[in-house]
Simulated assay, not measured.
Amino acid sequence: MNNTLLGQVTIGSDKLAASGALLQLKEFDTTDAQSDGLSNTTKGLGMPRVELKALDGDLGLSMGVQGGSLDKTTHIGLTVYHVGDLCSPIAAGIYVWSGDNWQYLGGTVPRRDRASFNEASGILTDFEGNQYTTKVFGTKRWMTQNLRAIRKPDGTCIDPVDGVRFNPAKNATVMPLAQIKVLGVMPSGNVTYTENGIVKTMTNEAFVSIFGLFYTWNQAMVACPKGWHVASVQDWADLTTTLGVTDLGAKLRGNVGATYKTTDSGVGYKWGSADPAVTISGFNILPAGWVREDGLNAVAFSTSAYLWTSAPAGGYRYLSFSGSTLSSFGSGNLNFRFSVRCVQD
């Protein structure tokens, strides 16, 4: 049975206790104008600070020591503070050993694997709980939305150093790194763009749920949910065969006939054909643009979509507002950041 532990005590200060502290003592010299709230006493009662490697199994191994060195039964009730960082698959916080596993008591939001696939509805859910619509084209099931995962199928960050990116409806604009870097969590903020003459303002998270995130080729190769893979050259070839080459670009596009405009451009681009005779496939590519290799320069929102393939040379597929075909390139800069569509294994 899990219990929630929220209480921490600090004596001598109204400031929050350090993470994992049960009792923290602080003393302030109120006569010293230079103290500025700094404490000269930081001792108190704290928990052992460890880095848990697993939540169950061998107790010793779960704590990063020799396997079999710690008895499961005699250590029931052992309570520790796990110091996992943002990209750790186990959320930082307080854990107690139950005899079979580490139970979470409090700290940060616990991380759990929410990945699943609902065959009846076609809804794919990744580790973080992001949901994607899917559809069968020919003999293969595709995601019909761009990937927006920040974590790998094992729960670790896709790139704990560089992060992934998103294009906040801007073109040829160098932006602060914090505005477009996504590392473990989505940065706060809003995005504004125009669609069919209507100005739309939404949170970064809501925007990304529509247009997806952008990945280098190496990031893309580890980003798809378990049981799915980055579309291969053959996958795209089979899709083209299934849909036919006539007006392929229009068939692949989402919101056909919608006019998009970025926040820093006075030009609006109609995304695809408005011809009612064109059969729309439901593949739903949107003009998300891409991000250059420096990770700071977002380009081509409202005009183009770029999607990786799993080709070792970094091959990718490209669709612009002006053309009706899906262009193919056999090589590219692996550090460009493009959209990703996954196919079921």
Rank of each mutant, 00 (worst) to 15 (best):
M63L: 15
D126N: 14
N2I: 08
S304M: 09
S39H: 09
A237R: 13
Q24E: 15
G314D: 10
N171E: 12
V83R: 04
R151N: 06
I280H: 12
P276H: 05
R341C: 08
T10C: 12
L252K: 05
L213F: 10
G315S: 15
E119W: 03
D56R: 00
D56F: 00
I90P: 02
N204H: 13
L183Y: 01
R141W: 01
L38V: 10
D247R: 10
M202R: 14
S320L: 02
N101H: 15
D345H: 02
V65F: 02
V65E: 03
M175E: 12
D162N: 15
I90G: 01
S35R: 05
T79F: 07
V136L: 09
S265Y: 07
F283R: 01
G189N: 06
A258C: 07
L286I: 13
I11S: 02
W290I: 00
N335R: 08
T31S: 15
W290N: 12
A33M: 06
E51N: 11
G12H: 04
A18R: 09
T240F: 01
F301K: 05
L38W: 01
D235A: 09
L25D: 00
D345P: 03
F329H: 10
Q66R: 11
G249Q: 04
N167L: 10
A54V: 00
L23C: 04
G64M: 06
D154V: 04
G155K: 08
I180P: 00
V291L: 13
C157R: 05
G84A: 07
N101Y: 12
A178I: 03
T203M: 09
E51R: 14
N101M: 11
W228V: 05
N40S: 14
V164R: 02
